[in-house]
Simulated assay, not measured.
Amino acid sequence: MSTLLPLPVLLAWSGGKDAAWTLHTLRQRSDVEVVALLTTVTAEYERVSMQGIRRAVLHAQARATGLPLLEAMIPAACDNAVYEAAMAQALDDAQARWPGLRSIAFGDLFLQDIRAYRERNCARAGWQPLFPLFGRDTAALAREMIAGGLRANLCCVDTQQLDADFAGRDFDAALLDDLPAHVDACGENGEFHTCVRDGPMFTAPIALERGDTVLRDGRFAYTDFGLT
């Protein structure tokens, strides 16, 4: 009797809680195997795009997962065409390194337009997108993450949706209790982004030092975190 090998999967890794919990979720399954992480990095800033996580922290996260990291480099002034070309090249590189790899997982939770956008791009490239957390109740999911040992900090806050004072705070039960009612518990509407420092997907915690919080583009409050 033949035994089916697990499906190799590439994971879109932002350095935040949703990507980290997606990795943890996939590792509970026997039918898939995450073989690598893929992150979009803004070349001029050497930081994860949108999250603003330092590249050194990103690499420490990858080491803690025990997985190789692929980086899609994009310019600071990046339109959809440039982004999609960089991602397509990264997927080609991944397939060349892992023959048979044609599936990529995302940590999206409930935004149908984002899911449809990823599905279209993956279809053009001949890849299969996976959404292991999609449709989960985000209030329950946020508390499940915390109870499961995930530790993270808010590294970016959209001040048009949430007060800048939340930037830098621990993603914990106290934070969830303090969030205004209109803010999603997982920040799925872009209210905030996180930087993960520990959790069941890591072999060891990452020691981070909190730096300054600065306002960018008159809207986004970024709190810098570096390795200690």
Rank of each mutant, 00 (worst) to 15 (best):
M1H: 10
T3C: 08
L5H: 14
P6D: 10
L7N: 05
V9F: 05
L10Q: 02
A12T: 11
G16T: 08
K17M: 03
D18V: 00
D18R: 00
T22Q: 02
L23C: 07
H24I: 05
R27T: 09
R29K: 08
R29F: 04
V32L: 04
V34Q: 02
V35I: 14
A36W: 02
L37S: 06
E44D: 12
Y45H: 15
R47G: 03
R54A: 14
R54V: 02
V57C: 06
H59G: 00
R63Y: 04
L67F: 11
M73R: 14
P75N: 06
C78L: 11
C78T: 06
D79M: 10
V82T: 15
M87Q: 15
M87C: 14
Q89P: 11
Q89S: 12
L91W: 13
L91R: 03
D92P: 02
Q95F: 06
P99T: 09
S103H: 14
S103C: 12
L109Y: 01
Q112R: 14
Q112F: 09
D113E: 15
I114L: 13
Y117G: 01
R118Q: 07
R120M: 08
N121A: 15
C122V: 07
C122K: 04
A123D: 11
Q128E: 11
L133P: 00
F134E: 00
F134Y: 15
G135E: 09
A139M: 06
A139R: 10
A140W: 05
A140F: 03
A142W: 00
A142C: 09
A147S: 13
G148D: 12
G149W: 12
R151F: 09
L154T: 01
C155F: 07
C156P: 01
D158G: 05
D163G: 12
A164C: 09
A164L: 07
G168L: 07
D170R: 12
D170G: 08
A174L: 15
A174M: 15
L176P: 00
V183K: 00
D184G: 14
D184F: 03
A185N: 01
G187I: 01
N189G: 15
E191T: 03
F192H: 02
F192W: 03
H193T: 07
C195K: 04
V196C: 13
D198N: 11
D198T: 08
A204P: 00
P205F: 01
P205A: 01
V214S: 13
V214A: 14
A221H: 06
Y222G: 06
Y222V: 05
D224H: 13
G226W: 11
L227I: 13
T228K: 14
T228P: 14
